[in-house]
Design a binder for these strands. Sequence first.
DNA 1: TTATGAAGTCAAGTATACTTGACTAAATAT
DNA 2: ATATTTAGTCAAGTATACTTGACTTCATAA
Lengths: 65, 65
Amino acid sequence: MKNHLKVLRAENNWTQAELANQLRVSRQTVNALETGKFDPSLKLAFQIARLFRLGIEEVFQDEKP
Amino acid sequence: MKNHLKVLRAENNWTQAELANQLRVSRQTVNALETGKFDPSLKLAFQIARLFRLGIEEVFQDEKP
DNA sequence: TTATGAAGTCAAGTATACTTGACTAAATAT
DNA sequence: ATATTTAGTCAAGTATACTTGACTTCATAA
C-alpha cells in the first residue's frame, strides 16, 4: 500500500507531531505510516482522507491489486 | 463504521463462503464484517470495494466522523 | 423424516496496528 | 559552540484483525 502522506503533510507545513495531534494518534504512528512500516486501519485512513479533504483512494493506493 | 456488505453480497446472490473465497479471507471474517464484529483492514477494504466496483466510501461509512 | 447448506457464534491462536518511553542523528536557532 | 527541533528507530506492551476448528440453529432439499 502506497500513500502520499509525507507530501500532503509537507504541503501543509506540518511536523509529524502536529499531524499526529490532529489525527489523535502518536507521532510514531505517523512516522511509521510515512516510512511504510505498516498501513493504517480503515478508521484512521478515513480520518486522514477527511483531514486533507481527499478520497481514500487519492491518499492511499493498493500496490498489487 | 457501517458497511453495505450484506446488501452487496445479496445483490450478487453469493453466500458468505463464496464472497470469502473471492476476497481470500475466511468465511468467519466475512460474517464478522457483516455482523459488525470488527472493521476490515484498509487492504481488505480496498479488495472489497474493487470486487463490487465501488469506491471505498460507497461501501464503508464512518459513523462518528 | 432425514440430510444438507447457510448463517451465526465461540475459543484460542497468530498477525498487524498502535501506544509509550527512550535514544540517535541531522538540521536549525540562539 | 551549544541548545532545540524534527525525523527516524527500537523495545515492549495493548488492541484489533484475521485464522482454524467446532458447534448450533434455521431453512430447504431429498
